[in-house]
Amino acid sequence: MTPPRPVALVTGASSGIGEAFARALAARGHDLCLVARRADRLQALADSLTRDHGVAVLVLPFDLSEAGACERLLAAVDDAGRYVDVLVNNAGYSIAQSFDDVPWKAQQDFLMTLIVNACGLAHGVIPGMIARGGGRIIATASLAGFAPGVAGHTLYPGAKSLMMSFSQALDAEYRDRGLKVTAVSPGFVSTGFAAANGTDAVMADAPRRLFLTPEQVVDAALKANDAGRVIVVPGWWNALAAGLMRGLPQGLVRWILMKGSAKYHLAAD
């Protein structure tokens, strides 16, 4: 009897880095559970992956800003008779305006999506991974996770920093039990991220040489995870920036970032 293919659950899979993760994992022979709000985009991707790679794909249109979404999502996977071998916590966005210019519900939704349900998914899949002798958890963090907070995108650096520290903690706790945990921390990536938060016009002025493609980010993440590396910063210029943010006095780093990031801080609508 042919053993079942491993299953990868990818959040934020309808575009950008999430879609690139789905395509790369399908090419590796994984069945997929695709999670995002846009069911039509997920279904189109699922059809493409099945046609190109012969993998089974479960489309799961969930809103991860909702409380309890992680439990409902994993229950849907279980109801389909599958379990998660690879978890990719990729869903995310940012809020460019000042903290009090945005309703608290929107800030709460941000925390639910990037932190609460992401951690909840990890909490839900780890026991099964351990019981089966191993598994993989990958988080899409950000170069911003190395940075001190500045005006605008108020919760974003803290959320990404938490996901890096969370990944390191999971590695410390579960490496000896067969888990491989990685957080990938890119800088600029050519996706719809800026259009979603309203900074696309400003981002268009950034030098194209500083941008990575989603495929480059995913390739770096998967290679790092294969090798058991916990934190990976793709792109030598991003790695240099991360090193400087960690090595220079924080006051100096914060002053530089406040000057450079002011254009990404949008006024309230």
Rank of each mutant, 00 (worst) to 15 (best):
P3N: 07
I17W: 00
T154L: 01
G235S: 13
L74S: 04
G120Y: 14
L155K: 00
F211Q: 09
V77L: 07
A8M: 11
L49M: 15
Q107Y: 07
I126A: 00
A76C: 09
G128K: 00
A56Q: 11
K223C: 07
N225M: 06
A196K: 13
P214Y: 00
N238C: 04
V84W: 01
G29E: 08
V232I: 15
V59H: 09
V77A: 08
V230Q: 02
G54M: 09
D63I: 06
L58D: 06
Q168H: 06
A46P: 00
T50E: 08
G18D: 12
A80I: 05
A139P: 02
S142Y: 01
A139D: 15
G133H: 14
G92K: 12
D52R: 13
E19T: 05
G145D: 03
G149V: 12
S167I: 07
I138C: 01
R229F: 06
A241N: 03
V116M: 09
G158W: 07
D171Y: 05
T2A: 14
Y156G: 00
R208M: 13
A76F: 04
V230S: 02
T191I: 07
L49I: 08
A44N: 07
S142M: 05
S165M: 14
G149R: 11
A106I: 13
M163G: 00
T113A: 10
A242T: 02
T140L: 15
R38W: 03
A268C: 02
W104T: 13
F99Q: 10
A224S: 05
H123D: 06
L240M: 07
P234T: 04
Y156H: 00
A27G: 10
G260M: 10
M258L: 09
G128L: 02
H265Q: 15
A13Y: 05
R23N: 10
A67P: 01
P207I: 13
A206Q: 13
R136E: 06
S98H: 15
A183D: 08
M258P: 01
G243T: 15
A39I: 02
V218G: 03
A172M: 13
G251C: 07
Q216M: 11
S161D: 11
T199N: 12
A91W: 03
